[in-house]
Amino acid sequence: MSETWIHIIMVVLILLVLLTIAAGLIYVERRMLAVWQDRYGPNRTGPFGLLQVLADMVKIFFKEDWIPPFADKKVFVIAPTIVMMAVLMSFAVIPFTPGIGVVDLNIGVLFFLAMSSMGAYSVVLAGWASNNKYSLLGGIRGSAQMISYEVFMGLSLMGVVILAGSFNLRDIVEAQRKIWFFIPQIVGFVIFFLAGLAETHRLPFDIPEAESELIAGYHSEYSGMKFGMFFVGEYLGITLISALVTTLYFGGWLGPHFLPPIVWFLIKMFAFILLFILIRATLPRPRYDQLMSLGWKVLLPLALLNLLVTGAVVLYWHL
């Protein structure tokens, strides 16, 4: 009985911490972008503008929850929840430390891949249900993009799975005691990171949104908390991909003993979150046919090659 309660409390705590991190990232991103762009960013609400997040949240909750009369109502409402749910479900398999984590699933990697594919529905359905031409184009781009990165995303992870001999994320972390996997799996890491960028629809792969072309694309028609869900979903996505990169390639909670495991995990995760933000500040956006041809012609063969070489090496030396 008490174990069940501990588990429930853990789940709720993780959920709360994650939502706080995702919301806090809005502030972090705006401040970091401002630093890199020679400006101030939000600095008026509270000390260092820290309460900006709160103000944004209050604003977004109190906005009229408006559904355009021409939209497909049910789908329009469901679409933003899918992205939130899919990302939050993925966090269930992330082992933050040996003790902190929702579930110890022996198909953790596959579960994550399944959930990330679900997330793409959110974009496609939102684009379709909005009944707006820009949203439609955004939705189409979203599905095109999904087709091009999903395949090599899954394949790029398989190198790690072969090395660890398990789909379980805890086992994968434990397998990195000798060497973090980003060294033997550098190709897989780069490919997975690119796929992660595309997965979260962040610049340079914010193609379904493409503000300067499609005016926010699939979520043009959204406002209030429904828009907020897409927004927070995006930041949760960044957190998720950063957490996964940490787990899969950078030894998860592992690190010298002077800091507790959870701190190591968070340090690595935030480093990748900052990298996400830095990339957003730096790169232009490719065309979606360019992304597709990069995916199919370059990254997919590379991921396959990486899988092949890893498999061969493991077989030959019986690692």
């Binding site: 972008l33 762009q37 493409a210 300067s212 500040a281 790169l283 232009p284 956006r285």
Partner: peptide, 16 residues
């Protein structure tokens, strides 16, 4: 122009 192609930062630096 950079902004149209999805680059966020140049426009701020150049406006400065």
């Amino acid at each position: 122009f950079a902004q149209d192609l999805g680059m966020m930062t140049p426009v701020f630096l150049m406006f400065n």
